[in-house]
Design a protein around this nucleic acid. Structure first.
Lengths: 189, 189
DNA sequence: GTCTATAGGAAGATAGAC
DNA sequence: GTCTATCTTCCTATAGAC
C-alpha cells in the first residue's frame, strides 16, 4: 500500500470523470476514455472488469466522496456563516469552472435502460446536497420545513443555471446563481 | 399537398422527439429511431438524407415551432393575465408530463463534437423562452430589466426542477415549480 | 416511399504475451 | 499492470428491388 499507483488512481478517476461529464454515458467510448486516461482499453478493463458501467459507477462514488469532503464538511464548521458560504461558493465555482462545465449528475441521468445502476447513486447525491444546504440553513434559526424548501430551491437553481449556461454558451446564468446563493439560503423573505 | 403523408409527418417527428428526449443524441440509435417510428432504417434515410444529425435538427426545428404556437402565442393574448398563466402552466405540465420527462434542450446539449449544428438552435430556443416570459412580465408594468431577470430565473427554475425531478425520481420538484410560477413572474418582491 | 440486404467501420470486451 | 491483437456485436449508411 502507498505505492505510486495510489496517486495515479486519483488522476485516473478524474480523467474518467471529465469524459463522462463532457459527453455523457452513451457518448463516452472506450477509446475516448482510453485517450483521456492514457491507458489502453485492455488496461482499463484490468482495473474495471465491469467495463464502462463500472467506471461510471466509480466516478459517481468518487463524486460523492469529493462533495462530502470538500463541500459538506466545510459547511458544517463553526466559523462565521458568511465565511463558510464564501468558501462553498469558491468550491462550486471551481467544480463547474464558472459555468463552463456541466454537472455529472445531469449527464449520467439517462443512460438508456441501464440507468438503474446509476439512478440510486444519483438520487443519494442529490439528497445529500439538499441535506447539507438544509442543515446550514436550519443552523441559522430557520425551521426545518423552511430550511428544506430553501435548500431544494438552491439545488434547483444550481442545476438550472448550469443547463442554461451550457445551452446559451454564456457563463452569466451560473455566475448569477453564485451571487444570489447566500440570499437564497439565508435572506429574509 | 394535403395527402396523408402530411399527417404521418407530424407523428414521425413526434416519435423521433421521444427517442432523442429520452436517450439523448448519442444514445439514440438508428435502430431505436426505426423501432419508435415504425419505419425501417433505410426509410428514415430516404426522409432524412443527413441521417441522425438531420433528424435531431428537424426535431429541434419542430420544437421551436411548437413552442411558438402553443406556448408563446397564448401568452400574448389580451385576456386576463392569470388565465393566460394558467393556460401556459397546463401546456408545460403536458409538455413535460408533470415532470416525468426531460427537456429536449437539455438532452441535446452536448452531442460530443457535433454540438455545433444543435448549439445554435438550442441557444435560439432558450432566448425565445426568456423573451416570451419577459414580454409577459413587462406587459404587467415591470421595467425591462426586472422583467428579463424574472424571465431568466423562471427558465432556470424550469430546467433545474426537471433535472432534480429526473435525478430523484420524484415529480415534486417540477410540480412545485409550476405552483410558484405565477408568483415568480408577477409577485411583488 | 418503403422495403431487404449488406457494406464498412467503430463499439465494447477478451486472450495472452511481456 | 500494461500492452498488442483479436473477437463479436452493433452502429451508421448505402444499394437496389418492389
Amino acid at each position: 500500500m502507498g505505492r505510486k499507483s495510489s496517486i495515479a488512481e486519483e488522476d485516473l478517476i478524474e480523467a474518467l470523470s471529465r469524459v463522462f461529464r463532457d459527453t455523457g454515458y452513451e457518448g463516452a467510448t472506450l477509446s475516448s476514455l482510453s485517450q483521456e486516461t492514457g491507458l489502453q482499453r485492455a488496461s482499463l478493463y484490468h482495473r474495471f472488469p465491469g467495463g464502462k458501467e463500472q467506471m461510471a459507477r466509480e466516478v459517481l462514488g468518487a463524486t460523492e466522496i469529493w462533495l462530502a469532503e470538500n463541500l459538506f464538511e466545510p459547511l458544517k464548521g463553526d466559523g462565521p456563516v458568511d465565511l463558510r458560504l464564501e468558501a462553498m461558493t469558491r468550491k462550486l465555482d471551481a467544480l463547474y469552472s464558472s459555468g463552463k462545465q456541466a454537472c455529472i449528475l445531469n449527464m449520467l441521468s439517462s443512460a438508456s435502460d441501464h440507468d438503474s445502476p446509476f439512478a440510486e447513486a444519483i438520487k443519494r447525491i442529490f439528497h445529500a446536497l439538499i441535506d447539507a444546504f438544509a442543515s446550514l440553513v436550519e443552523g441559522q434559526g430557520f425551521d426545518a420545513a423552511e430550511a428544506r424548501a430553501r435548500a431544494e430551491r438552491v439545488v434547483v437553481l444550481l442545476h438550472g443555471s448550469l443547463v442554461l449556461s451550457r445551452g446559451t454558451g454564456s457563463q452569466r446564468p451560473f455566475e448569477r446563481f453564485l451571487e444570489t446563493l447566500p440570499d437564497e439560503l439565508l435572506g429574509r423573505r
